[in-house]
């Protein structure tokens, strides 16, 4: 199976805080990857470095076999990204924001965007400032998926959502994407949520990936029944 993302010896410091210390990570194409770690371990930092929001101090990142640099941008056309706290221009309407976002993606599919808006019952004429957090998350998903990404990165997107919305999101949408061949990297500290959808698990601890394996294999290896138990077995 080919790798869509390969990270080697990644380092990142914030002042004296050495957050990422030679991190290695590979994502196989077409699978749902769970990135687990305790709060403050560097999950968001890692994702921001992948997305080119902040630079790494050292290490290499390859996307679809091509080494990318901090100044590169074209590789992001193939990546959908929903950050932990997605940003929207509050003074725009939903339709205006999507039109603005479409400017960045050559492969933007307006029909798909319309279909997702209908699916999530979002009114393109609604002002973003009137949306709830859950609705904004859905808008973030529309934004990320309408560009037909081959890699979808989600940084703890469900925190703060109510349970039904979270389950709907995880069970239906993510699984649907993965079944369609989209690679998903799902970062969360709510471990139990990933259980139903994850294919591979990557555990981040002390600035490194300490575990990178198929979920089923991990369960067998650790003798643990659930993902949370598996996680606790490695980070405790």
């Amino acid at each position: 199976m080919s790798e869509i993302l390969h990270i080697s010896q990644l380092h990142k410091r914030f002042g004296k805080n050495h957050v990422l210390r030679g991190l290695d990570l590979s994502l196989e194409q077409g699978k749902v990857h769970g990135l687990l770690g305790k709060n403050g371990e560097g999950k968001t930092t890692l994702i921001r470095i992948i997305m080119g929001v902040i630079p790494a101090d050292a290490g290499t990142i390859q996307v679809n076999g091509r080494t990318i640099r901090y100044s590169d941008a074209s590789y992001k056309t193939d990546i959908g990204y929903i950050p932990e706290d997605p940003f929207f221009y509050e003074n725009l309407k939903i339709g205006e924001f999507l039109a603005y976002n479409a400017l960045f993606y050559p492969s933007w599919d307006a029909r798909k965007a319309g279909a997702y808006l209908d699916r999530f019952s979002l009114n393109p004429k609604a002002s973003i400032s009137t949306l709830s957090r859950g609705t904004k998350l859905k808008l973030g998903l529309v934004t990320a998926l309408s560009a037909n990404p081959s890699l979808l990165i989600l940084d703890d997107p469900t925190s703060g959502l109510d349970v039904p919305t979270r389950q709907d999101f995880l069970k239906d949408i993510i699984r649907e994407l993965a079944d369609g061949g989209t690679t998903v990297l799902f970062s969360t500290h709510l471990v139990h949520e990933l259980e139903r959808i994850v294919d591979r698990v990557h555990i981040l601890k002390a600035g490194r990936i300490v575990v990178s394996d198929d979920y089923e294999h991990l369960k067998t290896q650790t003798g643990q029944a659930g993902l949370e138990a598996v996680f606790m077995a490695y980070v405790a």
């Binding site: 921001r48 997305m51 080119g52 929001v53 100044s71 941008a73 590789y75 950050p83 940003f87 960045f104």
Partner: peptide
């Protein structure tokens, strides 16, 4: 507002 992170993550050069 934090939009800098949004813009920086878009496929457009800084």
């Amino acid at each position: 507002s934090g939009a800098w992170a949004y813009l920086a993550s878009r496929p457009v050069k800084r």
